[in-house]
C-alpha cells in the first residue's frame, strides 16, 4: 500500500469535523442523529487506519465493537425521537424546551 496512513487519519478528522458542525448547526433531531452517525464512522475509519499502521487487528476489532454499539444506540435514539415527536408533534430540537428556564 502506497498511501500514507496519515491521509486516512486526516480524512477521518475532516469527516468528524463535518459531523460535529452538523450536530451544532442543524435543528432537525433526525439530521442531528445522522451527524452523530457520521462522527462514529469517522472514528471507525481512524481505528481501521491505525490497525493497518501498527500491523495488528486490535483496531479492527474495536471498530467492530463500535459498530455494534452504534446499532444499539441508533435503536434507542430513534425510539426516543419517535416518543418526543408523539408528545410535542415536532422533531425540531428548539421546540423541546421544557427544561429551559
Amino acid at each position: 500500500m502506497k498511501t500514507p496512513i496519515s491521509y486516512f487519519v486526516v480524512l477521518s478528522a475532516v469527516l468528524f469535523a463535518i459531523g460535529s458542525v452538523g450536530v451544532l448547526v442543524r435543528k432537525n433531531a433526525l439530521v442531528i442523529f445522522m451527524s452523530v452517525e457520521l462522527q462514529l464512522n469517522a472514528v471507525n475509519l481512524a481505528l481501521v487506519a491505525f490497525s493497518r499502521l501498527h500491523g495488528n487487528l486490535n483496531g479492527q476489532v474495536l471498530a467492530f465493537f463500535s459498530m455494534v454499539v452504534a446499532a444499539a444506540e441508533v435503536v434507542v435514539g430513534l425510539a426516543i425521537i419517535v416518543n418526543v415527536y408523539r408528545r410535542m408533534h415536532t422533531a425540531n430540537v428548539d421546540d423541546a424546551s421544557l427544561l429551559r428556564w
Partner: peptide
C-alpha cells in the same frame, strides 16, 4: 497527524 505520523505507511 502530520507531526506524529508523517508519511508512515505501516508494514507492507
Amino acid at each position: 497527524a502530520r507531526a506524529s505520523l508523517g508519511l508512515a505507511r505501516g508494514p507492507a
